[in-house]
């Protein structure tokens, strides 16, 4: 099926249908703490790539670097051959949309309005046209609404369009976040733990949803803890440990890689007999990746 794709130094964009997102040598330091160390990652068109790693491995920090929420200390992130500016709104405009680990919906807006906000970069109407309300405005607004409703149909939330986002059950809030991100018409969707806190049925539904998104030609990069979910879903998986990329490859390769098992899966059973790599791995805290000072103290 899929094979390991090494980090070829081919410039992205030179090869149509090839690399969509290319992160090169991304380093993120917070004061004395290096949360992400020299990570390279490529996502190709139409691919689902997984990013796994123990708590505190720097996955979310890396995500934040990709989406411009953090300015990486070193390294570049390029999308379709152009370097992404480290501003979240420009990254979204360029075609990379994301969801958040802890759901960040506009809780007091309706479901439909949430998705409409996602359309922001793909619409132009400014203040003046909103006040004058010419025919162009009505057309654009109607188009936006139609597109938003399509997305709500796609995610199965259409009948709740007028509900307040905060009143949705947890699983539907996750779906709404995805619908909102899709509204910005991305070429690449970044999902930060989309099944966190979900039951098995919901997880399976999310799996279906991600496949459906891929089938629409949108590449997906997903952070997840649920191994079964990741290995079912992804064409390729990268493992991040201690801010470094340990290994990257197909599900089989990663699943059978001893270092991964040691660092990630085997660790709790017998920490003392592990090799050098594993000994460096410390039990992760439950804090958000890479940003707490405990991490620093643990070393």
């Amino acid at each position: 099926m899929t094979t390991t794709i090494p980090q070829q130094p081919t410039p992205a964009g030179a090869e149509p249908g090839g690399a969509l997102l290319e992160a090169r040598g991304v380093i993120m330091r917070f004061g004395g703490l290096t949360a992400v160390r020299n990570v390279d990652l490529t996502v190709n068109k139409g691919e689902i790539v997984g990013l796994i790693g123990p708590n505190g491995a720097g996955k979310t920090t890396f995500f934040n670097c990709l989406t411009g929420l953090y300015v990486p200390t070193e390294g570049t992130v390029s999308y379709q051959g152009t370097v992404l500016p480290p501003k979240p709104h420009l990254v979204t405009k360029a075609g990379v949309a994301r969801t958040f680990q802890n759901i960040r919906l506009f809780a007091n807006m309706t479901v439909l309005e949430n998705v409409l906000v996602g359309r922001h970069t793909r619409t132009k109407e400014g203040l003046l046209s909103a006040i004058v309300r010419g025919p162009g405005y009505h057309r654009a607004e109607a188009q936006s609404r139609a597109r938003a409703m399509e997305l709500l149909e796609f995610t199965g939330l259409a009948d709740k369009a007028e509900h307040l986002a905060r009143n949705l059950p947890y699983g539907e809030q996750r779906k709404l976040e995805i619908a909102r991100a899709l509204a910005s018409e991305p070429g690449l969707l970044l999902l930060d733990e989309p099944t966190a806190g979900m039951n098995p049925q919901e997880t399976r539904a999310t799996e279906e949803l991600v496949f459906a998104i891929r089938d629409q030609g949108i590449a997906v990069l997903v952070i997840e803890h649920d191994m079964r979910f990741i290995f079912n879903l992804c064409d390729r998986v990268a493992v991040l440990v201690q801010g470094e990329k340990l290994v990257e490859g197909s599900s089989d390769v990663v699943q059978n890689d001893e270092r991964v098992i040691a660092a990630y899966l085997g660790e709790p059973f017998d920490a003392t007999s592990q090799d050098d790599t594993a000994a460096r791995e410390t039990p992760g805290t439950d804090q958000a990746e890479g940003t707490t000072s405990e991490q620093e103290n643990d070393r």
Binding site: L69, R104, F106, V117, G118, E125, G126, A130, S184
Partner: peptide, 20 residues
Amino acid sequence: RIGRSWIAIREDETAATAMG
């Protein structure tokens, strides 16, 4: 569009910028 973005900013500025 602009009013929704105001309210979005009020609700959660980080999420709003991430939405473009």
